[in-house]
Amino acid sequence: MTDFWNRLTIGQKLAITAWLFLAIPLVFYITIRFYPTFEAFYVSTLKWNLLGAKKAIGFKNYIKIFADEDFWLVLWNTIKYALVGVPVSMLIAFVIAYWLNEIHFGHDMIRAMYFIPFLTTAVAMAWVWRWFYQPLPIGYFNIMLSWMGIPQQPFLKSVTQALYAIMAPAVWAGLGFQIVIFIAGIRAIPRSYFEAAEIDGAGRWQILREITLPALKPTMIFLTVVSTIGFLRIFDQVYTMSADSAGGPLNSTKPLVLMIYEFAFDEFKLGRASALTVILFMILLVVSLVQLWLMRKHK
């Protein structure tokens, strides 16, 4: 054995050592992560209510899903969460990170303040926000509106407002993470770029456009993907906050994950739930692949 080991090149020894360390997480991932995923593919071709017999029905689950009007509404809701939530949260996070980077006094404390929501349970926060949205005399937002002389808003009870009202705490919860990543990105830009630009007479806007933002491109790609995936999987906030029924009113806030949950645990249609899971998985896979491609292209 030692003989065998001694005959290896340094590169081979390194590779073997590295693989030994990687083996444990690899086994973990295969059993805990990949296996259920493949299982979901299999179950998605079954008619199964968790207790009774499994019956193979091919692609019928998928056909039913695509024929279901509610699915398309839910898919559109899910996309809206990501389509609006991602740019809005990134813009807010960048503006805060940009200015936070300029100040030194209280920097760490303010950063911590933004980060705390990220560490808090989504459900607990959602409850607090739900309370904010209540009508007079309880809800803060309506109290503020009445101070400003603006008419009361239904928020969670409105088919048009509820989705955005639920999106707000999700955006807020993710800000801390995005800010920290943005600040790290900004700090990684060599100071001499800014000094050279300052001497060259560049204004804030030119520096931002020609130096800071281009340098942050990898950071932004990363954050876009992470938060897109986050918004596409939104669940806690909706489940906790939506009015009437989960995902209500009138399914106007229901995202894919909630629909999966209902199929599986309210209606015990395991096959249908799995098929929906597979669809979500495919969407997330495409998003991740696009990121990989963008990152590689950027290098």
Partner: peptide, 25 residues
């Protein structure tokens, strides 16, 4: 005008845009 030890050339701009940076400013 100052020239830095590490040159501080803006990596995302080409040579023309680097040289003309101050003029655009």
């Amino acid at each position: 005008a100052m020239v830095f030890q590490n040159y501080a050339l803006y990596p995302h701009l080409n040579v023309f845009d680097n040289i003309s940076f101050g003029l655009r400013a």
